Simulated assay, not measured.
Amino acid sequence: MSSEDDFGIPEEKLGQGLAVAAEALFLLNLLAFPGLAFAVLAGLWFKFRHSAPPLARQHLKQATWVSFWGGLLIVGLSAIILAAGGLQSEWTWVTLILYFTCIHSTLVLFGMYALIKALNGQTWRYPLIGPTVDGENTGKSS
Rank of each mutant, 00 (worst) to 15 (best):
S2G: 07
S3Y: 04
S3W: 09
D6G: 02
D6Y: 09
D6W: 02
D6F: 11
G8D: 10
G8T: 10
P10M: 01
E11H: 05
E11Y: 07
K13N: 15
K13G: 02
K13S: 10
L14F: 14
L18F: 02
A19N: 03
V20N: 06
V20Q: 06
V20H: 10
A21R: 09
A21E: 11
A21K: 08
A21P: 01
A22N: 00
A24Q: 11
A24L: 08
A24H: 06
L25M: 15
L27F: 02
L28C: 07
N29C: 03
L30P: 07
L30C: 04
L30H: 05
L31M: 14
L31K: 00
A32Q: 09
P34K: 13
P34I: 07
G35R: 13
G35N: 15
G35F: 08
L36T: 02
L36I: 11
L36K: 00
L36H: 01
A39K: 00
A39W: 02
L41V: 08
W45L: 11
F48P: 00
R49V: 07
H50F: 07
H50C: 03
S51H: 03
S51N: 05
A52E: 09
A52Q: 11
P54N: 14
P54L: 15
P54K: 07
A56K: 04
A56I: 12
A56E: 10
A56P: 06
A56R: 06
R57P: 05
R57V: 03
Q58M: 15
H59M: 14
H59Y: 12
L60Y: 11
L60I: 08
Q62P: 10
A63E: 05
A63D: 06
A63F: 02
A63G: 10
T64C: 06
T64K: 08
F68H: 06
F68M: 12
W69Y: 05
W69G: 02
G70M: 04
G70V: 01
G71T: 11
L72Y: 14
L72H: 08
L73C: 13
I74A: 02
L77I: 11
L77E: 08
A79G: 04
A79K: 02
A79W: 05
A79E: 01
I80N: 00
I80M: 07
I81Q: 05
A83K: 14
A84N: 11
A84F: 06
G86H: 11
G86E: 12
Q88N: 07
Q88M: 04
S89P: 01
S89Q: 08
W93M: 13
V94S: 06
T95I: 02
L96R: 00
I97M: 04
L98Q: 01
Y99P: 13
I103E: 07
T106K: 01
L107C: 14
L107H: 03
L109Y: 10
F110S: 00
F110I: 01
F110K: 00
G111T: 03
L115F: 05
K117Q: 10
A118E: 03
L119I: 13
G121D: 07
Q122F: 01
T123S: 05
W124I: 09
Y126L: 00
P127D: 10
I129E: 10
I129A: 12
G130D: 02
G130L: 01
D134N: 11
G135T: 12
G135Q: 14
E136S: 08
N137R: 14
S141P: 07
S142L: 14
S142A: 14
